[in-house]
């Protein structure tokens, strides 16, 4: 089947998609967007977190066809090497990246948290990120990164590319 969808603001027409394919597979294997990661493909680890019409979802649990006619934002859409989002900058500055496989999902999830709650306390951060597994860091530096991102973003607000509002 053909799936027409908007990803990171760009319209895609994807042909030959199987009914059983996930949005994650379509992004990674058919659209050249492998930033969303395939750690469990069971909705347990959060490493494939993307926005679907402004709501964070596990792309592995969304059928590719369900993305038809909708807005998807992936980690690639939040910032680029030349223009990093403050959440991305904070993960680098805090040393929250080791192997990095959980990082794209955590960045999208953190982006969503700070959009909803610009000043979360630690308990709120933990609840918000409880669906994102990390095996390397022990989460301490991820907490540091979220606190740092909250700080820099309240000092200098940035545009929201997630496609949530409007």
């Amino acid at each position: 089947m053909r799936v027409t969808t908007t990803v990171n603001g760009e319209r895609y027409d994807v042909d030959d998609v199987w009914e059983g394919e996930s949005l994650l597979y379509m992004l990674r294997e058919r659209m050249g967007l492998p930033g969303s990661k395939n750690a469990c493909e069971q909705g347990e680890c959060g490493s494939c977190t993307v926005y679907l019409d402004g709501l964070p979802v596990c792309a592995c649990l969304v059928a590719a066809g369900q993305a038809g006619g909708r807005q998807v934002t992936t980690v690639e859409g939040l910032g680029s090497a030349e223009d990093l989002h403050p959440v991305q900058q904070a993960f680098i500055a805090a040393g929250a990246v080791q192997c990095g496989f959980c990082t794209p999902g955590l960045i999208v999830q953190t982006h969503d948290l700070l959009r909803r709650d610009p000043h979360p306390d630690d308990a709120e951060i933990r609840e918000a990120l409880a669906g994102n597994l990390c095996r390397c860091t022990g989460y301490e530096k991820i907490l540091d990164a979220v606190r740092l991102a909250a700080e820099t973003m309240s000092a200098a607000p940035v545009d929201d590319p997630s496609g949530a509002a409007s």
Partner: peptide, 23 residues
Amino acid sequence: HSAGRPDSTLKVTGEFAYGSDLW
């Protein structure tokens, strides 16, 4: 020194190529 990782920008933007990303 706590020097930064050379691969961290690629990892936060989703561009770092893991084994499963090869194509």
